[in-house]
Design a protein around this nucleic acid. Structure first.
Length: 672
DNA sequence: TACTAGCTAAACAATC
DNA sequence: CGATTGTTTAGCTAGT
């Protein structure tokens, strides 16, 4: 008797693998992205550019030094010479009292992407520019920069410098500054376009989140791979260390620019006497909305713990935290690497968030459009639930109706299978599933089951299908297209969490259906008896409802404005999914749900055009032992494979009409 | 209102 | 003998 009991079990995990694998894939992606060289091509590009920039800057510097050595006798008047190496050494990070030397913008300005080293060399060899001219123009350039581009993205600055230098390069030194500026303006326009484009790209990539009222945060990744001290030294050498206006306007910026640290951490480069003032100021500037108490709050400090990734050091007071921050998380390779990792993480999260937001928006829009249609909402949404909860709605409501008014009442049970949420009472309250929509609108159930497999397996939601449909599905899914009763039981419990309870009830119903419906044929086997599906019988009985009641079809079509019955059924399903999606906050596979919705959206039309023969190749596999009364020829054997598609139904409804008074009723009468 | 479909419950018999 | 399987009936509800 229990010979088949062993078949149960094995594969409850199969369904959840989709979601799991998806998440794993996502995680993999994220992990991969943590290695800057692999995933973020933009970052790689920037890195390369930075390296190039460095090279170019060095080249320029070298050339200039050579020139200066050659022309040492006549130092330029009015313009300061480049600082000596010894003066360059103490850079901003270790030189708190002197903000002037911070010239970080310039560092970032060393963009190599337009001017090749060869070009630069050529320019310098031709001595197109004297250091003094260079200095003047740099200052002009910086002024323009301040005017036109307040954002402090490195890329912008680099591009500006690029333009500057290039403009120089093609203008003879004799020419007047206005001509140079003209050329520069042209370049500027070009660069601005590039900047805009680039910023858009970055925003799209989630690298940047520019808030309206906030100064744009530096894109630290642009300086990845650059050593701030070196860069600033180079800049000093190039500019002579005189870019005061820039220094003033962007003294904080400067630090940012030379640091790959995320904006959230304004302290990284603040090697000021760590009294917190500067940091607090910077912090307040950068996150003013968050920080009302700059002295004691910090994005990296919370509940007495350093929130630097992987740190979690505990501090009694804010000052010690600041000290710790300056000491332990100073600008070094480790911190930089951690910041990069964090950036990648954030980027991935933002990407994901953006995608999901977009998806949600589309769904909301879709729902809103639907709900505004007069008759669409009430019927399909409650189609299942009304019937289902008819008996025990008062019981069920507290469990299944904490949602919004649009929530379908029935199949909604919390997705977590925990007993804390689902009580036996509530489950029991989910009453008979009369007029499951799959029956009513001839929805093929296998796509639904397939797409929502994970959902049904994990959520104790009553599947909106009749027992007959489910039994048929179980049988058709089997390799032999035949199952023992116990195997059918197992399929139910395996596929639907709902059927893991109240076994006596639904098993009785299964048996009842097997016996009652002619479409289920019992075949004696060596091992005992197995049940098969007489597909023809099954197909015959189902379309009666919809084809036999044109009013229903009409109602569906008119009420939904969609035309085909597909829309009604689909909307029910969609509503179900969406409701779940929207109201159940913690569900491990939201993505899969959303994907299911999307796939349904996409697939709906496919079903409308194909005959929807999906996963059930089952074609009357049976010898039909006692079905001598199956005399009507199948309309089209192909059309009867698998679950009914709506098109099939629609196309053949007249045919089914003349099958209306089929023996099913007679058979029932016989039995009764 | 009558009819039908579907569900639940239950009684009962046959089989393992 | 108990559990399982299979059949049948009854009653109910919702939809037509």
């Amino acid at each position: 008797m229990m010979q088949e009991s062993g078949t149960e079990a094995t594969s409850n995990g199969s369904a959840s693998q989709n979601g799991a694998s998806g998440e794993a894939a996502a995680r993999d992606g994220r992990l991969k992205s943590n290695t800057p060289s692999v995933e973020v091509s933009a970052g790689d590009l920037m890195h390369l550019q930075q390296q190039q920039a460095l090279q170019v800057a060095r080249q320029i510097l070298h050339q200039q030094q050579q020139q200066q050595q050659q022309q040492q006798q006549q130092p330029p008047s009015g313009v300061l010479k480049s600082p000596k190496a010894s003066e360059k050494a103490p850079i901003s990070q270790v030189d708190p009292p002197a903000p002037a030397p911070h010239v970080p913008v310039s560092v970032a300005m060393m963009t190599p992407q337009v001017i090749t080293p060869q070009q630069m060399q050529q320019i310098l060899q031709q001595q197109v520019l004297s250091p003094q001219q260079l200095q003047v123009l740099l200052q002009q350039q910086q002024a323009l920069m301040l005017q036109q581009v307040r954002s402090r993205y490195h890329r912008l600055h680099r591009l500006y410098v690029c333009v500057l230098i290039r403009g120089f390069g093609f203008v003879p030194p004799q020419q007047q500054v206005s001509a140079q500026q003209l050329a520069f303006q042209q370049q500027l326009l070009q660069v601005q376009q590039l900047q805009h484009q680039h910023l858009l790209n970055l925003q799209r990539q989630g690298l940047l989140s520019i808030q309206p009222g906030q100064p744009a945060l530096p894109l630290h990744s642009l300086t990845q791979g650059m050593i701030p001290a070196e860069l600033q030294q180079l800049w000093k050498e190039v500019t002579g260390g005189h870019v005061k206006d820039e220094n003033h306007s962007s003294s904080q910026t400067s630090l940012d620019l030379s640091s790959p640290v995320p904006p959230k951490n304004p302290l990284l480069n603040q090697h000021t006497p760590s009294n917190g003032q500067y940091m607090a100021h910077s912090l307040k500037r950068e996150s003013s909305t968050v920080d009302d108490h700059p002295q004691h709050s910090h994005p990296l400090y919370g509940h007495g713990v350093c929130k630097w990734p992987g740190c979690e050091a505990v501090f009694d007071d804010f000052q010690s935290f600041l000290k710790h921050l300056n000491n332990e998380h100073a600008l070094d390779d480790r911190s930089t690497a951690q910041c990069r990792v964090q950036m990648q993480v954030v980027q991935q999260l933002e990407l994901q968030l953006a995608k999901d937001k977009e998806r949600l928006q589309a769904m909301m829009t879709h729902l809103h459009v639907k709900s505004t249609e007069p008759k669409a909402t009430p019927q399909p949404l409650n189609l299942v639930s009304n019937a289902t909860l008819s008996k025990t709605a008062p019981e069920a409501s507290p469990q299944s109706l904490p949602q919004t008014p649009t929530t379908p009442t029935a199949p909604l049970t919390p997705l977590t299978q925990g007993p804390s949420v689902i009580t036996p009472n509530s489950l029991h309250s989910v009453g008979p599933m009369r007029r499951r929509y799959s029956e009513k609108y001839n929805m093929p159930i296998s796509p639904d089951i397939a797409q929502n497999k994970e959902f049904y397996m994990n959520a104790e939601v009553r599947p909106p299908f009749t027992y007959a449909s489910l039994i048929r599905q179980a049988i058709l899914e089997s390799p032999e297209k035949q199952l023992t009763l116990n195997e059918i039981y197992n399929w139910f419990t395996r596929m639907f969490a709902y059927f893991r309870r109240n076994a006596a009830t639904w098993k009785n119903a299964v048996r009842h259906n097997l016996s009652l419906h002619k479409c289920f044929v019992r075949v004696e086997n060596v091992k005992g008896a197995v049940w098969t599906v007489d597909e023809i019988e099954f197909q015959k009985r189902r379309p009666q409802k919809i084809s036999g009641s044109p009013a229903l079809v009409k109602n569906i079509q008119t009420s939904l404005g969609y035309g085909p019955a597909l829309s009604a059924a689909f909307q029910v399903r969609l509503a179900k999914h969406l409701t779940l999606f929207l109201h159940i906050s913690v569900y491990p596979t939201l993505n899969s749900l959303a994907n299911a919705i999307r796939e349904e959206l996409n697939g709906a039309m496919d079903h409308g055009n194909s005959n929807g023969s999906d996963s059930s190749p089952g074609r009357s596999p049976l010898p039909a032992t006692h079905h001598i009364n199956v005399k009507e020829e199948p309309l089209d054997p192909e059309e009867h494979e698998g679950p009914l598609s709506l098109v099939t139904t629609a196309n053949h409804s007249p045919d089914f009409d003349h099958n209306r008074d089929y023996e099913d009723d007679q058979g029932n009468d016989d039995m009764q």
